[in-house]
């Protein structure tokens, strides 16, 4: 990272939140871990940023962060976009915490809508920013009703919705925030990660925490928790596939962003996970648009 390290701010509590708020959030996190997939209410605080910018994730991160942690923050896979840069700087200022862009070096990774490509390891914690924690919200707007539906494990409405997709489009049309079933019990919204990332939720060695600031909910997946993407026997869950490899690093197994390159229909597909892409390029992998600079013809596809 080339950006200068922000100067630690004085006069703030460690990691911004006061101790009583941290205790309240910590209690919610512990109950969330004990009931995987269940949304635990918490007294979400005003943060120095608007709702929708990751206030849930930032509160969870603030409640768990310690002096020996190494923090990575990604926004749609990128370490260098506004949301990620701001949140990283926020914790550098308020907690003097070490930061990294490398997935393998991080102990805590706060993410907006992606799971890193590099497999996470035991001891790492992934904190998701969640806009709408309730998977049933757009099918049943009343919170009083959705809570009863979770209490009764009454998830027929979602299966009907997915069936209607199949009837209308010939396939389940959901491509992000694809609902999952946790340990055969709770239906959970994995946050708006692409469904490409859904299989990474299942039996992950890392602890996964979800924070929704505006909706005031925290939920969790302990390591090695069974997470199944909803589907039908004759319409099984399918991971998104890409037609072309990454234009920069040539990866064929990563989630790609489409980038429009001119006003004549030009476009390229590049890794959404910037750290993964940089690491591959550093290791000599070259995609089509970097091929001429590579001098390594065997990696050109």
């Amino acid at each position: 990272m080339n950006a200068p390290t922000p100067t630690p701010a004085t006069g703030y509590a460690f990691a911004y939140l006061d101790e009583q708020t941290k205790r309240m959030i910590r209690r919610a996190i512990l109950k969330a871990v004990a009931i995987p997939g269940h949304q635990v209410p918490f007294a979400s605080r005003d943060m120095p940023m608007p709702y929708g910018w990751g206030t849930g994730g930032i509160q969870v991160t603030a409640a768990i962060l310690g002096r020996s942690d190494v923090l990575k923050v990604i926004d749609q896979g990128a370490d260098d976009t506004t949301n990620a840069v701001s949140i990283r700087a926020f914790f550098q200022k308020t907690a003097s915490v070490a930061v990294t862009t490398k997935t393998a070096e991080a102990t805590v990774i706060q993410t907006r809508h992606r799971i890193p490509e590099k497999p996470l390891t035991a001891g790492q914690t992934l904190v998701f920013q969640v806009p709408i924690p309730e998977p049933l919200r757009f099918l049943e707007p009343r919170e009083t009703e959705t809570r009863v539906m979770h209490a009764l494990a009454d998830y027929g409405l979602m299966h009907v919705k997915l069936y209607e997709d199949v009837a209308k489009h010939g396939r389940i049309a959901k491509t992000y925030a694809y609902p999952v079933e946790v340990e055969g019990r709770y239906m959970m919204d994995p946050s708006p990660i692409p469904k490409f990332d859904n299989p990474k939720l299942h039996m992950s060695p890392a602890l996964q925490l979800f924070g929704a600031g505006r909706e005031k909910r925290i939920y969790a997946l302990p390591p090695f928790t069974a997470v199944k993407s909803l589907d039908f026997e004759d319409h099984p869950f399918e991971r998104t596939k890409f037609e072309a490899p990454c234009a920069l690093c040539g990866a064929t197994d990563a989630y790609l962003d489409e980038v429009v390159t001119d006003d004549r229909g030009g476009r390229m597909f590049v890794c959404s996970d910037t750290d993964h892409c940089e690491e591959r390029r550093a290791a000599g992998h070259r995609g089509a648009m970097l091929a001429d600079t590579a001098g390594n013809e065997e990696n050109v596809r």
């Binding site: 460690f14 101790e19 941290k22 205790r23 910590r26 996190i29 512990l30 871990v33 004990a34 409640a63 768990i64 962060l65 310690g66 002096r67 602890l207 969790a220 302990p222 390591p223």
Partner: peptide, 14 residues
């Protein structure tokens, strides 16, 4: 309290 919490969190998570 932060280090105690993380120990308890890890204990309940694993």
């Amino acid at each position: 309290s932060q280090t105690t919490f993380r120990a308890v969190l890890d204990a309940l998570a694993e």
